[in-house]
Design a protein around this nucleic acid. Sequence first.
DNA 1: TTCATAGTTCGATGATAACCGAAGCATTCA
DNA 2: TGAATGCTTCGGTTATCATCGAACTATGAA
Lengths: 223, 223
Amino acid sequence: MIAALVGDPARANMLMALMTGRALTASELAVEAGITPQTASSHLSKLEAGGLLEQEKQGRHRYYRLSDPDVAGLLEGLEGVAARAGHMRVRTGPKDPALRHARICYDHLAGDLGVQMLDSMKKQRLLRQSKQAIELTVEGKRFLADSLQISAETLTHPRRPLCKACLDWSERRHHLAGTLGAAMMTRFTELKWAARDTTPGSRVVNFSRTGEKRFAALFGDAE
Amino acid sequence: MIAALVGDPARANMLMALMTGRALTASELAVEAGITPQTASSHLSKLEAGGLLEQEKQGRHRYYRLSDPDVAGLLEGLEGVAARAGHMRVRTGPKDPALRHARICYDHLAGDLGVQMLDSMKKQRLLRQSKQAIELTVEGKRFLADSLQISAETLTHPRRPLCKACLDWSERRHHLAGTLGAAMMTRFTELKWAARDTTPGSRVVNFSRTGEKRFAALFGDAE
DNA sequence: TTCATAGTTCGATGATAACCGAAGCATTCA
DNA sequence: TGAATGCTTCGGTTATCATCGAACTATGAA
């Protein structure tokens, strides 16, 4: 059973350490999980047999990575439900500072900057949040058109909402999802403000010097 | 830890029984899981404490249901990964015939009819599938415009693919997801061919008499 | 070769938790 | 009332499995 594999705390810690998308060696993972190499070895072979991990031998090292983006999605979903139920994990979120700062969550911006963006947009009255639902204000529409050349009208989708609050893995607060969240992220990359990290499987988003400046001008906390 | 809750076989069986969206009593769930009522009671309180289930008292019965559509989504995702890794579950898919026949998977059609539709569309060369990816052919575009008044051009989305193969929970074969899958499902409801079941939380899709006939005319296996 | 490092396998131990029988509440019906 | 049903709580038993020490294999370096 897959869920049972993820259920063990030691294994869960290993999987979380791999959520960065990077591959880690068996001993690194043992340290992450706080267990001896023997125990780690046993866990890793189980996870591999379960299809959650794949292995790459290199010299005397064995690198493990999540076998599939779907697995990462599953883990993030699991975290989401856990957080909502008040079951905060002991180790909350990624340690990699780059990943905490800005990363992709499905197709929109997450991490420190993602949370900051939603906060700022609410403060500027571009968005209005009531409980779960978020709606775009008239000022918000104008802002998007003027500052980012995004026309809100083109973002309607039969099922997917325009705006949605998505619980941030590292920050434990909401960031902006929905078609608008996705559209803004694509705009940032088009404008060359930001780019997804090139290492395959990585979810890190790197902002350029000027990109971060422009972003801060729009969504900086000193508003 | 949430995953550990789902990891236990007895609890997993209960959760799967609740995937229909209907609420079941504690003793019904005990039978589903093949355990005594005492044990079931213990499991159920754990699941409730974990936020996966919610309870409704009614007379001397206690009805349990999945607390959230997200939970159902999580379970379906878990099943998907398990199936891909060759870890077929003992109890595969729903027993409810209506649910096997046609249901909602996120926002598109799943179940017997969903699988049948994708098969037929490939047979008619409306879609071409190579491994994971599915693409719409020229004939496919014409077909959608002529028969369902769907313009493929309007369905482009920055991140979400037009067509995507989604592993069917009950059938263990692919059905059509992506923006096209979603658009077709909305069209079916608009045309009053089908409607989601009215009981809250249910994922069953009911086809009308004429709806099923029209559907079969387009995607029937006798082609 | 020899030594060191990375990782695995084996065996024993210990803790967790699933399980059920028995008894106890609570609700409904007669 | 009392009896029946649905469900929970309690206690004790049992099995599973995570854990680690020790010994073993494999790769790389001296």
